[in-house]
Amino acid sequence: MSQPPSQPVIEAKALNLVFQTADGPVHALKDVNLTIGKGEFVSFIGPSGCGKTTFLRSIAALEHPTGGTLRVNGMTPDEARQKRAYGYVFQAAGLYPWRTIAGNIRLPLEIMGFSRAEQEERTERVLDLVELKGFGKKFPWQLSGGMQQRASIARALAFDADILLMDEPFGALDEIVRDRLNEELLKLWDRTGKTIGFVTHSIPEAVYLSTKIVVMSPRPGRITDVIDSPLPKERPLDIRDSREFIEIAHRVREGLRAGHADD
C-alpha cells in the first residue's frame, strides 16, 4: 500500500543519541533519518542494542536525543506529549492490580481531567474496540496475558491520540495468541486510522503488520534499510505463505545480516 506522502507525523533528521555510561559513551542512535506519514504502520526491527526502542522512546520524549532534530506532529517530542499526541504500549501490560480493567483504562482519563461521564463513555468504547466488552469489572489477575495486553492497548487508545507507539507489545505472549492479536491490531488500525510505531524482534510480525519496515542494526544503532511494503491493506493470516510476503521477509533478513556483517 503506497500512500501519497501526506504531512509527516514523525520526522527525524540526523538524529543522534549518546548515553554516557560507566564504560564510556554508548552511541544508541547514529544519524537516523526517517519520515513517517499519517496513517502509516511502521515496524522497527533489529537485534537488541540497535536503538529501536530508544528511537520509540525518543518520539515519546522518554529519552532525549543529543543531536539532530525530531518532530512529532510538527512539534518537539516534549510539546507533543503535553498535547497528548501519542498513546504508548509497553512490553508488559503493566495494569494496576488494584484497579479493575475499566479502572485501568480510566487512569489516563482521570489524569487528563476528562469528565466522569466522558470517562465512562470512552472506557466502554475502547473496551469494545479491543473486544473486551463485559470485562470492565474484572481485575487484571482474572484475565489471561493476551487479554491483559489488549486492555493495555485500550488504555493507550482511550484518550484518542493520533499516534500509537508500541514497544514489543506481544513479545511476552505465545505465538498462537500473538497471531490473533496481530490480526486484531490490523483491524483496529484500519478502523481508527492511527499512525502506529511498532517495535518487534519478529520478522513475520513486522512483515505481516507494516506498511513500512525499518531495519536497524547495533553499535552504533542506525537504520540499514527502509522497506515500503507492497502488501495489500487487507491481510488474512495466510498472506504469510504468499510469494510477496516471503520476498519481503527475505529482504528484512538480508538487511539484518548486512547490519551484523560490519560488526
Binding site: 520524549a61 522518554l62 506529549r81 503535553q82 504508548y88 509497553f90 503493566g94 494496576y96 488494584w98 489516563p108
Partner: peptide, 23 residues
Amino acid sequence: MQLDLLKTYNAGDAAAFWKLRLP
C-alpha cells in the same frame, strides 16, 4: 515502566503519588 507510563500521560508528581505510589 509504570513510572514511564505515567510520564506518557504527562502526569505530575502528585498524580504519580496518589494514583500509583500510594496504592
